[in-house]
């Protein structure tokens, strides 16, 4: 579905991505692991069109994304749940959802309203707080809002940048249930996670990003067999 080929992205002289190759599989939960500073967020920002890569190509269903403005990338069906949620704090929950459907707003307001109804059915807590300012929500609620807002763009591929960051364990579980549910409904997911234990429970495909390169790619089974990765990301070894 999404094919990343030899992507290199730099901040000035610092190369954050140094030739990343990976393939996000259609209809699966694909998970990108890696230590802090590996370039995970940079890769997400590059796919979303916020950062321009120095070289390489990103094909989405056969279409080249490199060079497209972020708005067109949303338009072809890729939405991002950003790191740290980034809800609009001074807007109500409902307005945040409308903003998520910004590109569709000109076409049909009624469709957008219908989708807001769907989001409220899926996330009843957001409906309870529909007119509340997003900045007053708890961290978990903001994360739900951020997911719902991204879904308002009707994406075929949902990018999620560390959705569990800074949330209590129970909330994290709730978020992962939502991810699994979205997958069952047919959305392809490309997830960045530090919480490897949780990611292992739901993901079908793993990639390990280290110092700007993909150093491992495989299934959960293959991941679990790799002693080095087990030690580094799961904190266990086979002798435990």
């Amino acid at each position: 579905m999404l094919e990343v080929k030899d992507i290199a992205t730099a901040y000035g002289k610092i190369e954050a991505l140094r030739g990343v190759d990976l393939r996000v599989n259609d209809g699966k939960i694909n998970c990108l692991l890696g230590p802090n500073g590996a370039g995970k967020t940079t890769l997400m920002m590059t796919i979303a069109g916020i950062l321009k890569p120095r070289r390489g190509s990103i094909l989405f269903q056969g279409r080249e994304l490199v060079g497209l403005p972020p708005g067109e990338i949303v338009g072809v069906g890729i939405a991002l749940v950003p790191e740290n949620r980034l809800v609009f704090p001074q807007m109500s929950v409902r307005e945040n959802l409308v903003a998520g459907a910004f590109l569709r707003l000109a076409k049909s307001r009624a469709d957008v309203e219908r989708d807001i109804g769907r989001m409220f059915a899926r996330f009843p807590r957001l409906e309870e707080r529909a007119e509340q300012l997003a900045g007053t929500l708890s961290g978990g609620e903001q994360q739900m809002l951020s997911v719902a807002r991204a879904l308002m763009a009707q994406p075929r591929l949902l990018l999620m940048d560390e959705p569990s960051l800074g949330l209590a364990p129970m909330i994290v579980e709730e978020i992962f249930e939502i991810v699994a549910e979205l997958h069952r409904e047919g959305t392809t997911i490309f997830l960045v996670e530090q919480n490897a234990h949780m990611a292992l429970k739901i993901s079908h495909q793993f990639y390990l990003l280290d110092q700007g390169r993909v150093t491992f790619s495989g299934t959960p089974g293959q991941l679990a067999e790799d002693e080095v990765i087990r030690r580094a990301y799961l904190g266990t070894s086979q002798t435990d």
Binding site: I50, L80, G100
Partner: peptide, 20 residues
């Protein structure tokens, strides 16, 4: 107006929504 408020609250998030 929604776009203006989105950009003034968080320009990066506004770009993620496809706002120019």
């Amino acid at each position: 107006g929604l776009a203006v408020r989105a950009v003034s609250e968080n320009p990066l998030a506004a770009r993620f929504m496809g706002i120019n």
